[in-house]
Amino acid sequence: MSDRIEVLKTYKTYVGGNFPRTESGRYYKVYDKDDNVLANACQCSRKDLRDAVVAAGDAQPGWNDRTAYNRGQILYRIAEMLETRKAQFIEELETIGYSNEEAEEEVNTSIDRLIYYAGWSDKYQQVFGTINPVASSHFNFSMPEPMGIVNIWAPEERPLLGLVSVMAPVIVGGNSCIILASEKYPLSAVSFAEVLNSSDVPGGVVNILTGYRDELLEHMTTHMDVNAFFYTDTTVDEEARKQIDENATLNLKRVIRKPIEDWLADDSQSPYFITDFQEIKTTWHPVGL
């Protein structure tokens, strides 16, 4: 052992491809399995969320204009980057109480999940789009198109796998998103932002904030430029659920609630999670000489 003093990482947020700290200057303490302080995470504010929505709005049209093939390759690239940083993520999960095997399983599944959705990038349109045989001389087809900007609560448990599982189906379909990381275990999310940052994902497509759900619920569900709100925790109580739904009426935000207990299970990934964040657009055109 050397006497070298280790350099500790400051855990920040990820907005518009940059790593700012919260504008509010607030923090909250994150603890390891033995209740030692691991880090000071940003306690993000409404203003941070609004900045993130602006970044997501700027990035979304360009992201959607990428070819499906390109989006697929970028998701694959995220998986590649995660694979090379596996050790770091395993170690991080161990600090919060995962055994080495459990941590490895979570990271492996996360990588595989990214590959799963990368592969869907140019296929869900074929499975869920239609050509409609209308009874007139028109060519008519229906295709899924992204909703736009999606606010997401990453699952409280499974700090890496949960995050990857809610992010991938949203962005593979051309949406951009703002993800509030697990409140209790936000560190994997912040480290994952570093993976995103080196994976050719355009800045602003994925934005990651840390902070308190209770504080940010209202702002994440009422923001008028956000098209959908996605959450999966079974622990969200009835009152919060009702509040989310009510707030969403303001601009008819789509609320996608998918209670999922086991993120390792195969049925926690599905092309239907992609289409949950798509709108079907139908185009008519006359046929004639």
Partner: peptide, 29 residues
């Protein structure tokens, strides 16, 4: 950003053709 686009036509409807809105024009098809 509309659920239906009529190109060189308008107000055509058919049972095989999905209809419905983006944004505040509705949810579902």
């Amino acid at each position: 950003r509309n659920g239906v686009v009529w190109s060189n036509t308008y107000n055509k409807f058919d049972p095989t053709s999905p209809f419905g809105g983006f944004k505040e024009s509705g949810e579902g098809r």
